[in-house]
Structure formats: structure tokens, C-alpha cells
Design a protein around this nucleic acid. Structure first.
Lengths: 223, 223
DNA sequence: TATAACTTGAACATACCTGTACGACTTGAC
DNA sequence: GTCAAGTCGTACAGGTATGTTCAAGTTATA
């Protein structure tokens, strides 16, 4: 708990015990982490399974979370939060195509895990809550796509929401291919980038060649 | 039953009663159809739910299908069969880009429903059975993509399996957008086609303009 | 160290889904 | 019209998941 609504820290639904014991905090952490892993693998993992994976008793879990929905919410919030944190370090300025490549490189496997969790969330959480959690990460990509359109390097004949969705779909597709053994992790980012850049290219303009990434870049290595 | 292995019609797993009564056949038909709808909406729909949607009693369902897996198999087989049937009428000759557009136009919503069913099937059916059912439809697209590559209009720097998967992912994405209310059915095929054609364009070559479909085609309308 | 917070396994109540069995009723086919 | 085939509702058994309660044991913190 307290992972999402920690703005005022004034109305905890649990008894007035403001600060939990170190022991309890450790258990909660283990539970949330185990939930992310288990639900990522199987959206309908039971609470017993999650508790066992966390190394705590089932009763302990119920001592901290009053329902399954609360566990799912905590796991989802945490995953999104961590993902957002990691993504904030990515430089999205400069050529939108390069920026998109960097974004994909940094996020494709995060997006996959978040998506697996999302399947569980969609069955347990109210739709409003899901949109609320998803709003942050989505906004950054939307902004990037919009900038690419304004600069004329991304197509404008399709809605932004569609393009963002295509990007996510392609990322998800890569994760599926990996699970099926038809793709290796090293090639994933390259394939996703090549596909997305082509899909985003305005009609009539040439598809960009597979860039050598930042092999001889100016802002990456030492002088 | 008998919806999939109707080649020799010689070894029905059910008792020697070769022909069922009209009444029974009607029930079976209703159940399979209801199963396709319910499982398409929710992969873990219960048999009670399916029976209710079919307008029959739960016991009747068990009279025709001995297990849940059998119901899923029948629904999946039927959907694939119908889809394959519809797809066989599509002309995949000529310019691969035009052929792909025709294929998308005819199949995008079928692919979505089949995919929703597939989620249910993956939890209930042995993997071999799934590949067996999926082999037919997948082959046609693969062939088309391969031909496009050989003719130089589709890219060859990505694996065929990847490209086919991207196409399916984009189709699925469209279905999701429609469910979310961000896209209307009329625009779906156009968006999918525009996205896929761009994604398949070889690097360095220009992305095809959004063709006016077969507005002034040579092989479609009357002279 | 003393106390309250925390953890634990076992047990309980509830609910749902699966699959099966029974007796009574309706309907199709001959 | 007859009779088997099909259907129906109810009820049972076995399984699993969700929450809750309880009486004990353990551990952090003051």
C-alpha cells in the first residue's frame, strides 16, 4: 500500500498506525514483487501462489491486502512506476526517428511485462483506474510522435492514437515471437525499430535504412 | 462434432449412431456458435454461460460434448474453417501490395475473432492441435509475403515469420481500438493496410500512397 | 526486557466450475 | 400413434479460489 496515493499521506485506510514495522514493509515488498512476476507469467495466478512465491504465508498477505484487486493494483502501479522511472532517463530530443529508436531500445521488454500484468488488471480493476495508471507512460510517446509529425518525418494520415497502438502491438508481437522461439532477444529491438520506423514513414517518402544505431555517434561514447 | 474430421466419415468417436436427430444437430450448432461468441468475449467463460447463451440446458451440452476441451476445440475448428473458407475466395494474385490490401479487407475482423478464441484454446488444447488448426490460414499469407519479397516490393531484411506476425498484431490492434471506441469499423481496413504496406516497404524505397483501393481498377468492376 | 506488532498453519464458510446421475417431460422419425 | 432420442431441472460429488477467524509463536522496537 501507499505506493500510489502517497501525496498527502493523511488518510490511510488501515488503522491509524502510520508507520509499519520494518518486518511488515519487507513482507509487503516481497508480495508486490512476487505478484508482478506471477501475474506477468499467468494473469490468473492465485493469491496462494503469489504468497508462496513471496515466501510468506497466505494469511500474511491478507493482513496487508484486503482483496485480490488490491494486490493486482499494487503490482500494476509498481511496474508502471518503475517503468516510467526507467523511461524518464531516455533522451527523446533530436531527430524523432533516432529518439524513437532509443525509446524502443529502452522499453520494449518493459512494455511486454507491463502488458502481461495489464491482462490481469483488466479483469480485476475498474476501467478508470487502468486509464489513470496508463496515462503517464502513454503521454511521452504521444508527444514524441506528435513532434515527429510536426517535423514532417512521421506520417500524418493516421491518428496519433493509432500509431502509438501500432508501436505497442509490434512490441508485443516481438515478445510473442521470443516466447515462441522464433526470435532472439538481441534482434528484437532492431526488428521493432525497423518495423515501426517504416510504419511511421509518410507515404511517398523513402523508408529509412536500418541505422547503425549510435555506432559512431556524437553524444554517447568518449571523445 | 464431425466438424473437423469429415474426410472419410468412417470412425466417429461417438457410439455407432451415425446420424443424429434434427433436434440434436440444432442444439449442437447453437452450442458451437454460442461458444465462439462467448469465448471470443471472455476466454474463461463457463460452460453454464455458453449453454445459457445457446438457449439449451447445461446437461444437454454435456450430452453432446464430454468435456470443456471438446467444446473449445469445436468452436475453434469451426471459426478457423469458416475463416479459411471466406479467405479462399480472395484473389491473391497480381501486385502483392494490392493482394495484401484485398486480404486485409476480407479478413481483419475474422482474424480478430479467431485470435480471441485462440487465447481460450491455448489454455485448453494441446499445442500440437493448435498448430494443426492454424497451419492452413498462416500458409497463405506467408506465401503472399514471400512472393512480394521475391518481386522486390516487400522488404527482405526481416524474417517472413516476423512480418506475418506484425500483420496479425496490427489487425488485433485495430480490433482493440474499435472496442475502445477510438476507431470505427469503416476506417479499420484502411488503417491496417496503410500501416502494413508501409511496414513491409523495403528500406530506401518510398512508402506507397494510400491507394484509392480498386476505384479505377482493371480486374474488379465492369468495363 | 517487555510489549505490541507481525507472522503462521490450520480450519472454516462461501462461492464457483466441472462432470455425472436421476426421473419426468417433449419432440422427432418411422 | 408409437417409441426411442433428445431435453430439462434438480441434485450430487470433487475440486479450487477467496476471505475470515483463531490460537499460537516470533520479532522488531521502545
Amino acid at each position: 500500500m501507499g505506493s500510489s496515493r502517497n501525496s498527502t499521506d493523511q488518510k490511510p485506510p488501515t488503522p491509524p498506525a502510520a508507520t509499519k514495522r520494518a518486518d511488515a514493509r519487507r513482507s509487503i515488498e516481497a508480495i508486490v514483487q512476487a505478484a508482478a512476476v506471477c501475474l506477468g507469467r499467468n494473469p490468473e495466478a492465485s493469491l496462494s501462489e503469489i504468497a508462496r512465491a513471496a515466501g510468506v504465508g497466505r494469511v500474511t498477505l491478507y493482513g496487508h491486502f484486503s482483496s485480490r484487486a488490491e494486490v493486482v493494483d499494487a503490482a500494476m502501479s509498481r511496474a508502471l512506476e518503475q517503468g516510467n522511472e526507467a523511461l524518464e532517463g531516455v533522451d527523446l530530443t533530436g531527430d524523432p526517428r533516432r529518439a524513437l529508436a532509443r525509446y524502443i531500445e529502452a522499453s520494449w521488454h518493459l512494455v511486454d511485462q507491463a502488458r502481461a500484468l495489464l491482462v490481469a488488471a483488466q479483469r480485476e480493476l475498474p476501467p478508470g483506474r487502468i486509464r489513470e495508471l496508463h496515462a503517464g507512460p502513454a503521454a511521452r510517446v504521444e508527444t514524441l510522435v506528435a513532434r515527429g509529425r510536426a517535423e514532417g518525418v512521421f506520417r500524418t494520415d493516421l491518428p496519433i492514437s493509432w500509431m502509438v497502438n501500432v508501436l505497442h502491438a509490434v512490441m508485443h508481437s516481438a515478445a510473442e515471437e521470443i516466447r515462441a522461439g522464433r526470435l532472439t532477444s538481441e534482434h528484437a529491438a532492431g526488428h521493432i525499430t525497423a518495423t515501426a520506423l517504416a510504419a511511421f514513414t509518410p507515404p511517398g517518402k523513402p523508408v529509412p535504412e536500418a541505422g547503425q544505431d549510435s555506432a559512431r555517434g556524437a553524444d554517447d561514447g568518449a571523445p
